[in-house]
Every structure is written in C-alpha cells, then in structure tokens.
C-alpha cells in the first residue's frame, strides 16, 4: 500500500496542493487529469526523483527521503526513455547488475513471451517502433521486480491499432507479476477499462477518488463530471428541485423525442437546432430555454419520428436515468 500525506510540490507555475491518497497493494490505480497538469512530476515525486514536501509511506514505512534506487518502484515514461547505449536485451536486463533478481532467467523468459519480444532482443533500440519501445520499457521496469509500477501516459504514443492489445497486457500485469500499478492518464476511456480505483486530479487537487465504476458513473462535482465527458449537465432547479448548488445529468441515449415521448417523468418543449448523422446514429442538439440538450438517436428509430431542424417538439426522459451531482 502506498500512502501519500499532504504531498506538496511547486515548480514554476505548477503546484500540487497537499494531496492525500492511498493506493492499495495489487491495485491498478489510475490518476486521471488533464494533459500538462503535472502528472509526470507527481509520478517522479513518488519515484523519488523530484524532492517533495509532505510524507510518503510504503506499507507503513516512511519513504519520503529514500533515494529512487532503494524504493523499488519501476518507471515507464511517456516516450519510454530506452537507454540508447544498450540493445533491447541490455535495456530489459539493466537492473540485474544493481540488485539480485529472484529467478531472473525465468522472469526474463516469461516477459519475452508475455510481451512478444523474442524477435527484438538483439535489436538496436533506434530501430524499434513506438509499440515495440513501449513493450521493452515495460519489460525493463517489470524485470526489476518492482513493488509498484509507475506508468506515465503509457498509451499516448502508441498507434491506435496496437492500443487494445497493450491495454489487455497492462490489465494482466498486477496479478501476473505480483505488483501494484499507478497509471496516470488524461484518457478516461483508458481508465474505465484498466482501473480498479481512480483518483481525479484537476488544477493540482484531487477532486474525487474511489472505485472505478463509482467515480466514472457518479461524479461528485461538476468539474469531474465535465472532465469525464458527461453531457447534459444542468441545474437541478430545472427539474423542480430547490437545491441551488446541485446539478443533474442525463445520458444522451436516454432522451426521447416526439412520438416516443408519450410517457416520461420529465417532459419539456424543445426546439431542434441541429441534426448530425454519424454512422449508426444521429446526434441531436435541442434547446430548452437557454439550456442545450444533446441526444443520440439510433438511425433505426429516426424513421418513426418527424424530427427536423427548426421543429418544436416534446423532449422527455425518466427519473431513473438521471444522475444528481
């Protein structure tokens, strides 16, 4: 278990404000935050590369001042930082000169097999593709038998065609190699597939942390909801609630129009502003007063409605489909 207490760090304009969080052992923990919000610096602090204020504990032992080489935390940078003066094999086995690796040969064989590296071992790292570099960097970090793996946007430099395969490998790492993963990314889709727990960090503060599905489906603040791509965020007063500070959200797939609106807990008159046909569905933007709703209607259902741009029509949805924030 990694525990951060009042982690504080400032570099130029960027600041992390007294972060408290806990990463359980064997967890796949994703820190979600915008690009350029200092997530790399946070990971470097945890690895011991950047000095910090506050305290860091690993399994109740304080490690705040421990140098990186004694923390046993593996690190994978966004652009992998493979050592140019070693070939692929030399990169992967780098750690064994500095610490005893339990069952090194077996681990090496297993990594080569798991990450599909057998044809690359004697290659110069200059001649690898992005995806290959990524696998080598992962193997290098795992070969050191880290207590925890720190991954900095590990999928952002990968060709989309290989991303799914690498995501599948990443998900397996914690159990296969008996380790804990702390993964930072700006991509909530990545997080929804990989994470056991998620912490959302915006403007140097952790706004929400919890089990992945909980954070992804029940954001506790409007900032988190926006960041997670929630559409249709409106004041709860629109539905007749009298709590001023609350918001509600409605899934674009659950909004119905026109003839499909015979029953519905909430019902508004709207003006259809724009209809955009996208592969198998239509994106529909409709205004209710000053609020602009966004809905998705499958193409098969469109035929049964008389929706067209400029039309005034009923818009409705059910109480069970809204989320209160």
């Amino acid at each position: 278990m990694l525990r951060a207490e009042k982690l504080f760090l400032r570099r130029g304009e960027f600041m992390l404000q007294r972060l408290d969080f806990t990463v359980p052992t064997h967890d796949y923990f994703v820190l979600l935050g915008r690009s350029g919000s200092g997530k790399t610096m946070l990971l470097e602090s945890i690895a011991g590369i950047q000095p910090i204020e506050g305290r860091l504990y690993w399994e109740d032992r304080e490690i705040t001042r421990l140098p990186p080489e004694r923390r046993d935390f593996g690190f994978v940078y966004q652009d992998f930082a493979l050592f140019p003066n070693f070939d692929v094999r030399g990169n992967i086995r780098f750690a064994e000169r500095y610490k005893p690796i339990v069952e090194a040969e077996k681990l090496f064989e297993d990594l080569v097999d798991f990450l599909g590296l057998s044809s690359l071992l004697d290659r110069n790292i200059r001649h690898l593709s992005g995806g290959e570099k990524q696998r080598v960097a992962l193997a290098r970090a795992i070969f050191s038998r880290p207590k925890m793996l720190l991954l900095d946007e590990p999928l952002s430099a990968i060709d989309p065609t290989f991303r799914n395969a690498i995501m599948a490998s990443l998900k397996e790492i914690t159990s296969r190699y008996d380790t804990t993963v702390l993964h930072v990314t700006h991509n909530f889709r990545e997080a929804s597939y990989l994470a056991d727990h998620i912490a959302v960090i915006l403007d140097g503060k952790i706004l929400q942390t919890g089990r992945a599905e909980e954070v992804l489906h029940k954001p506790t603040s409007i900032e988190v909801a926006k960041f997670l791509g929630f559409k249709n965020l409106f004041p709860a007063s629109l539905l007749g609630f009298d709590q001023e500070q609350r918001y509600f959200t409605i899934d674009p797939n659950k909004i119905r129009f026109d003839g499909r609106c015979r029953e519905g807990d909430y019902r508004f008159d709207c003006t259809v502003e724009r209809i955009m046909g996208i592969t198998d569905h239509y994106k529909i933007f409709a205004s209710v007063g000053t609020h602009r709703f966004f809905a998705k209607v499958p193409k098969a259902l469109m035929a049964s409605t008389a929706l067209r741009e400029g039309a005034k029509t009923p818009l409705c949805f059910n109480r069970k489909d809204i989320g209160i924030i």
Partner: peptide
C-alpha cells in the same frame, strides 16, 4: 536525456552506476 538517468536509478543504479553506465557512454 536526464530521464535516462532517472529510469536507471529506479532500476537500482546509484549515482556512480548511473554516471558510469548512462551518462559517460552517452
């Protein structure tokens, strides 16, 4: 790249090891 040195340290190399095997060859 200073990050080569950072990675090497997370892999267990101390300051001297990093200097000998990463900085100097680079």
């Amino acid at each position: 790249d200073v990050r080569y040195e950072h990675v090497a340290r997370t892999l267990g190399a101390g300051r001297f090891g990093v200097f000998w095997r990463i900085a100097l060859p680079g």
